[in-house]
Write a protein that binds this DNA or RNA. Structure first.
Lengths: 196, 196
DNA sequence: AGCTTTCCATACGCATGAGTATGGATCAGC
DNA sequence: GCTGATCCATACTCATGCGTATGGAAAGCT
């Protein structure tokens, strides 16, 4: 009875969550296609025998890892930004998040690159839809009409997705130090968030 | 003497260019990581023996394919857009290209997803730099200062890169038909290209 | 103490893909 | 019509990764 106490690490044995966390590390470090059970087992100091006790197969690990990320993401990001009443301030807070919580952005960037995977696509589809709706709602509150709000939301989110790829993979020209990154984010907010 | 007449297909034997074209097809269809010589050989109706005659290894094929794409891309896109004098019109022409020449965009999107590959990164780095400079130059001519031009260029290019991922992989909500896509592109141009 | 559940190691089989070695077939040129 | 270059098939080796089968050790319960 009672759900397993999650990350217990009783003696030095593993549970499913340990594998999920390690899987997210691997995704963050080398991408979805690099997520393989044997290398992961080596990193955890065990063998495949352990893995196939906790999971049905590799896809189950991948699915669990992504859903864990989705859960953490929704808690640590939207539950903080959502309650802000002023829509402009809410958007600004959201934009400035790009310079923080790197791990989550990195994982998202890797998931974006794996959208062709049949397991990743549906999960990401609902994540993207939720975020687009969130953005569109804010622009709606600012005063844009329905169509403009949806377009502006997609525009903003495209910036986010594209910037992640360009900035994380290539070390974008001149954006190494934090000051320039902040300047760029400011420019982006001024351009994409209507002021009047 | 004289360079081999490229795509000659003399009898029914292959040359290096045939492999490069097929490689780009494979990249466009299933991404860089799916580019493998044995499946490609099957698709071409030959065996690996043929491949290793024309190429040193898989990396050579990948490198050649990307550079072929880069060459075609630079010819068919920038040589057409570059000569337009009015910077705003030049940018608009560039933006509207997103709805055309899908194959090239698809390949670019796949290359974006493979930026972690050591062979892809340097090539894409120079492609991105060239395009960012191109964009920044246009904004400079419109009247933005140096910093603003660079920021706006990066902003535009992030939109491009991100939109590719979202639109090509997920079938973005509501943007199925061409009319909505055009409307979104119009919205993007109005937002990102200064009017006065 | 004995039994059961939980977690993991070992040792398989199977598939895919890279790369090599070698010989056969075909075509050009003399 | 012989020769050499070109293009490709066949047949390997090697490495990696998935998934399974099975037994063993440790922990918990009774």
């Amino acid at each position: 009875m009672a759900n397993a106490p999650a990350n217990a690490r009783d003696k030095n044995r593993l549970n499913a969550d340990d594998w999920l966390v390690a899987a997210l590390d691997e995704i963050a470090g080398h991408g979805v296609h690099a997520l393989a059970v044997e290398p992961l087992a080596r990193r955890l100091g065990v063998t495949k025998g352990s893995f196939y006790w906790h999971f049905e197969n590799r896809d189950a690990l991948l699915k669990g890892a992504i859903e864990l990320w989705e859960k953490q993401e929704q808690e640590t990001l939207f539950d903080v930004v959502e309650p802000i009443e002023d829509p402009r301030e809410r958007l600004r807070r959201l934009f400035s998040r790009v310079g923080e919580e790197m791990r989550s952005h990195i994982i998202y960037g890797e998931l974006l690159k794996a959208l062709d995977h049949e397991l990743v696509k549906p999960i990401m589809a609902r994540v993207v839809k939720r975020r687009l709706d969130f953005l569109a709602r804010a622009f709606r509150q600012i005063g844009l009409d329905r169509q403009q709000s949806q377009h502006r939301a997609l525009l903003c989110y495209s910036v986010y997705a594209g910037f992640l790829q360009l900035n994380l993979q290539l070390g974008l020209p001149r954006l190494n130090d934090h000051a320039d990154l902040d300047a760029f984010i400011d420019h982006t907010m001024e351009t994409l968030i209507p002021s009047s």
